[in-house]
Amino acid sequence: MSANARDAAERVRPGKILAALEPQWVWDRGEALIRFLLLLAAAFAVFATLAIVISLLSDAAVFFRRVSPLDFYTGTTWDPDIEEVFGVLPLLTGTLIIAGGAALIGLPLGLGSAVFLREYAPPRVREIVKPVLEILAGIPTIVFGFFAIFTISPILQDWFNADFLNGANAIIVIGIMIVPLVSSLSEDALTAVPVELRDGALALGATRYEAVSRVVVPAGLSGIVASFILAFSRAVGETMVVLLVAGQTTVIQLDIFRQMNTMAGFIAQRATGDLAVDDPSYLSLFAVGLTLFAITLGLNLLSDLFRARFREAYE
């Protein structure tokens, strides 16, 4: 249908009268020009990605000429100021611990609320909960950071004798922040699973929970995993919360109740636009940024892979 219509549009030209008014080549040219402009717009994302890669690479290359990549990726001390030692492992472990901890909190909560909204919630409850989750998703991250400082940090200090700034603050808040993302993407995945599968399980005498946990969730697993990976990637790149509540460290810190730092957090702490261009700690921003970009890109591609597999099965 649509293909036919499209072909028709390309074949059908204005008739003689119109042609007399406006030569055909003007139409053709106009259409082609517009098409070209739109193509340029669509290619913008590719240009931007290239620009990111190039600008990160060019400064990171200067950095790696001074600090060997081996030292950078195996060094266990991150002290860009005093000793000028650039071992990224403290930032990397901090990133993984904070993002992993946030995932432990956010993924079950997100999937749980997706299952609730999809399988159990009466329409009226859905109508309330979904917009609230959207509001939660739209709150600027800096606000979440303050929430951690004002509300969560005091509790952690009381209960766990934590530092004022600590990793657990960031874990909890980022965990909550990714709930709306996981919830909405997982719900999409659950929705895409044909209802006949759930009904088939119910018809065999499954409870609703059994139908969901044994049939619907496994059937939608690749879509759910895709949402999990995307959420983890979001947590890896989260900056403001870490900047506000996690603190700083020069060594590998495994205790989440002490100060921790992440790659994204370091970039925002250090880059204030005032550093000299050849300052090693300015250049190190780009090495860290490149590493961060590579990790999130990898995660996103992995997520795409799962989503593609899911689409293949159900669309």
Partner: peptide, 20 residues
């Protein structure tokens, strides 16, 4: 209904094997 359906099999219009 769970017990009821356990006693009563239902075959659907379109075959709906689980993706297992």
């Amino acid at each position: 209904p769970v017990l009821l359906r356990r006693k009563i099999g239902l075959i659907f219009q379109k075959p709906n094997p689980f993706p297992k």
